[in-house]
Design a protein around this nucleic acid. Structure first.
Lengths: 141, 141
DNA sequence: TTTCGTGCAAAACCTTTGCAAAGTG
DNA sequence: CACTTTGCAAAGGTTTTGCACGAAA
C-alpha cells in the first residue's frame, strides 16, 4: 500500500491523517505479516505517542478494515495489516507458538459445518474464535 | 455425587474439607449444568467467603477434576461440575449465548483433523481453544 | 474555525499474590 | 501441633473512559 492509498483510505473514512496514525501504520508495514500487540507497537513507533492513542488508532484501523485483530487467551490482542485494505479478509484461524510467540494463519475454516448444524437448530448470529497453540516446527526440533 | 463422595474426593487429594469449599460445591451442584463465574458463585454462596477464596477453591477444584473451566475471551471464566469427578471429561467445545449468557457444550471436536495435519508438518504440543457465540434458539425467537 | 485527535490521569475488569490470622486433621 | 485455608489489601495486566488541550481540514 502506497502512502497515498493509505491517506485516501483514512480520508474515505473521515479519519484525519496524523503523525501518530502514520507512525502506527509504518510500524505495521515494516513488520508486515507480523502480529503485534499495542504495547509492542508503542515501543516501535518513532514519534511520541501515548499507549492509549495506540489503542484508539488500532481500534479505528480495525473498523476501516486496515488491520486484523487476533486475540489469544489471557494475552494482549495482536494486530496485523490486511493485505487488501477495506476488503474484509477471508475468515481464518491462527496458530500461536508458545515458544517463539509467532502467530501464523491456518488456511481454511473447519467450524463452518458445525455452525450450519447449529443454525438448523435455531441458533443465530453465530461467530467463533479459535486459538490453536503449541510449538512450531522450528521450536519443536 | 453424595456428600461423602465429595469429602472423599477432597481427602484423596489432600484438600481439607472447609465450609467455603462445601458451600462452593453446593452452589455448583444446585445449578448443575450451569456455567457460573467466580463472581456469580460468590453471590450465591451461603457462607461468608471472600471472592479471592472462590478463585482459589475453583482453581483447586479444576486441578482435582471436580469442575471444568471454560473461558470466553475478555470475560470472566465460568465453571461447572464434572459429572464423573476425577475422570477428565471428553474434550468438548462450548457455545455461549450473547443474549442470556448461557453456556452449553457442543458435542464433538472438529479440530482433531486440523491438528493431525499440523502434527504432520512438525508442530507439536498442540492444544486449542474455541469459542462459539451467537444467540441461542430461545433468544433468537 | 470547527471538528477531531491526543495526552494524561484514572478507572474498569478479571485474576493473582503476600502475609498474618484462623481453621483443619 | 503442624499444615492448610482464609481474609484482607494490594498489585498485576490489558483495555476503556473523561476531559481539556492541541492539531487537522
Amino acid at each position: 500500500m502506497t502512502p497515498t492509498e493509505f491517506k485516501n483510505l483514512l480520508r474515505d473514512n473521515s479519519l484525519r491523517v496524523t503523525k501518530s496514525r502514520v507512525a502506527v501504520a509504518e510500524v505495521l508495514m515494516h513488520d508486515d505479516g507480523q502480529y503485534l500487540s499495542p504495547e509492542e507497537i508503542h515501543q516501535k513507533v518513532d514519534v511520541p505517542c501515548d499507549l492509549v492513542s495506540i489503542y484508539r488508532i488500532l481500534t479505528a484501523y480495525e473498523e476501516i478494515g486496515l488491520v486484523k485483530k487476533s486475540e489469544f487467551h489471557n494475552q494482549a490482542a495482536r494486530y496485523s495489516l490486511i493485505k487488501t485494505p477495506g476488503k474484509k479478509p477471508h475468515h481464518e484461524h491462527y496458530f500461536k507458538c508458545v515458544s517463539c510467540d509467532t502467530i501464523e494463519p491456518i488456511k481454511g475454516c473447519f467450524i463452518a459445518k458445525t455452525e450450519k448444524q447449529l443454525m438448523e437448530s435455531g441458533y443465530r448470529n453465530l461467530s467463533h474464535h479459535l486459538e490453536i497453540t503449541g510449538t512450531c516446527p522450528t521450536c519443536s526440533l
